[in-house]
C-alpha cells in the first residue's frame, strides 16, 4: 500500500470537495424552488398549465441527465442567437451551465415527489380544517403542506442523495470537482483503482451525513410515525389490545 500516494490523492480530492458541495447545494436549492412551481402548475387544474407541467416532468425524467447536460453546455452554444443574448454570460460558464442542468432535472423529479406527498394528505384531515373555518392559504400552510412534506420526505431524501452523485457529471463539462480531479490524477498516474476508491469514499461520507441529517429531521417532525405498533394501524388502542403487538421493523 502506497500510503503517501493515497494521502496525497485524498488531499487533492478533499481540496475540491467544496466545489462538489457547491454544485449540490445550488442545484438542490434552485431545483426545490422550481419543483414548487411545477407542482403547483401540475395540480392547479388550469387547462394548459397542468399539461405543460406534466410535459416538463416527462421530458426531464425521461431523458438521460448526461444528454441534458451536454445539450445545455455544448449544444446550445452552437446558436449565434444564444451567444449574443443576455443568457450567454451565465451559460458559457461550465459551473453555471451544469447547475442549471441538474436543477432542471431534479426540479422535475422533485415535483413528482411533492405531488405524491400532496396526494397522500388524507381528505379527512383537510375536511376537519374546512369545518373549523380554514380555507385557501391558511389551510395549505397549516394542514396540507405540513402533512404533504412529512409524506414526501423519505422519497425526497433519496432524490437529494441521487443529486449528490449526479454532480459527478460536471466533470464531463470541464468543472473541476471531485470526479473531474480524480480523472485528472488518473491520467497522470494510471492508478485508477486507488484514486477512484478515494473519490468513492468522499461521496459515501458526504451522503452518509446527508442521510443521517434527513433521517434526524424526519424523526423530529414525524414522531407520530415512529416505531409504535399503532402507527401502522392508526386508532388501534394499545391499552385495550390483548397484549403488546410485536411487529417487525418497517423498512424505510
Amino acid at each position: 500500500m502506497d500510503f503517501a500516494f493515497l494521502s496525497d490523492t485524498m488531499g487533492q480530492l478533499l481540496a475540491v470537495t467544496p466545489v462538489t458541495l457547491e454544485l449540490w447545494i445550488s442545484c438542490i436549492a434552485i431545483g426545490g424552488v422550481l419543483a414548487c412551481f411545477v407542482t403547483w402548475a401540475r395540480v392547479s387544474g388550469v387547462p394548459g398549465l397542468t399539461q405543460l407541467a406534466a410535459a416538463y416532468i416527462f421530458v426531464f425524467r425521461g431523458s438521460p441527465l448526461l444528454i441534458q447536460t451536454f445539450l445545455l453546455y455544448y449544444g446550445v452554444s452552437q446558436f449565434a442567437e444564444v451567444r449574443q443574448s443576455f443568457v450567454w454570460p451565465v451559460l458559457r460558464d461550465p459551473f453555471n451551465s451544469v447547475v442549471i442542468s441538474l436543477a432542471l432535472c431534479t426540479g422535475g423529479y422533485t415535483a413528482e415527489i411533492f405531488r405524491g406527498g400532496l396526494q397522500a394528505v388524507p381528505g379527512r384531515e383537510i375536511e376537519a380544517g374546512r369545518a373549523i373555518g380554514m380555507s385557501g392559504f391558511t389551510l395549505f400552510r397549516r394542514i396540507i403542506a405540513p402533512i404533504a412534506l412529512r409524506q414526501a420526505l423519505p422519497a425526497y431524501s433519496t432524490e437529494v442523495v441521487l443529486m449528490m452523485k449526479a454532480t459527478a457529471l460536471a466533470s464531463l463539462v470541464t468543472v473541476w470537482e471531485v470526479t473531474g480531479v480524480a480523472q485528472r490524477i488518473i491520467s497522470h498516474t494510471y492508478r485508477t483503482f486507488e484514486v477512484f476508491i478515494c473519490a468513492a469514499i468522499i461521496y459515501l461520507v458526504l451522503n452518509f451525513i446527508v442521510i443521517r441529517l434527513l433521517l434526524h429531521v424526519e424523526r423530529r417532525i414525524s414522531p407520530h410515525l415512529q416505531g409504535r405498533p399503532n402507527a401502522i394501524h392508526p386508532g388501534a388502542p394499545p391499552e385495550h389490545a390483548a397484549g403488546p403487538i410485536e411487529l417487525p421493523e418497517v423498512p424505510r
Partner: peptide
C-alpha cells in the same frame, strides 16, 4: 367557526 363539527372518524390532524 360557529358550528363545531365532530366526525365519525375523529379526523384529528395526525402531525
Amino acid at each position: 367557526t360557529e358550528l363545531g363539527m365532530v366526525f365519525q372518524n375523529f379526523n384529528l390532524w395526525s402531525h
